[in-house]
Simulated scan of single mutants.
Amino acid sequence: MQLDPAEMTAVVNRLKRAQGQLAGVLRMLEEGRDCEDVVTQLSAVSRALDKAGFAIIATGMRQCLAGPEGEQTLDVARLEKLFLSLA
């Protein structure tokens, strides 16, 4: 299954922001910043990655449910495994 690049634009942008946030976390650690500040930023990175993962899975679900010529190609076990990998 190929993900629609147009639908992935928002996901790519979210991942780029998360990449910047993660660089910020590394900088904070190197500078010896307060633990609470570091954990807060790390939590924000984690949430951004989770949201990106869920967006990718949701897009994949739509594509699976609307397979070629109405053919249903959804593999529920595979989809469940993907969701659980983000839990």
Score class of each variant (00 low, 15 high):
M8A: 01
Q72R: 13
K16S: 10
N13M: 10
T73C: 09
V12D: 13
E7M: 10
D4L: 13
M61S: 02
T9Y: 00
A66N: 09
D75P: 00
Q19F: 00
L26T: 04
A18N: 10
L29R: 01
D50E: 15
R78P: 05
R14W: 02
A23S: 07
G67L: 09
A66Y: 10
L79V: 06
M28F: 00
V45E: 13
T73E: 09
L22I: 02
A6F: 00
T59H: 01
D4Y: 03
S46Y: 09
K16L: 10
E36P: 06
E7I: 03
M61R: 08
T9N: 07
A18P: 05
E31I: 01
S46Q: 15
L15V: 08
L26C: 01
A55T: 02
G60T: 09
V39D: 09
N13R: 03
K51D: 14
E69D: 14
L26A: 06
Q2H: 10
A44H: 03
E71N: 03
A48V: 05
Q19A: 00
V39Y: 08
A10C: 05
L26Q: 11
M8C: 06
A77E: 15
Q21T: 03
D34W: 13
A10L: 01
L15I: 07
G32A: 05
A58W: 01
G60C: 13
C64E: 14
R33C: 05
E7R: 14
D50S: 13
I56H: 05
R47D: 12
R33S: 02
R33Y: 06
D34L: 13
E36V: 09
V11W: 10
I56M: 15
L29P: 01
I57A: 05
K16H: 11
E36F: 02
Q41D: 00
A23C: 05
V12E: 12
L22P: 01
K51W: 01
R47W: 10
G32E: 08
G53N: 13
Q41G: 03
M8Y: 06
D50A: 12
V38Y: 08
V38C: 11
K51G: 02
S43L: 04
R27C: 00
L26M: 06
V76R: 11
E30N: 08
A44D: 12
L79W: 15
I56P: 04
P68I: 10
G60N: 06
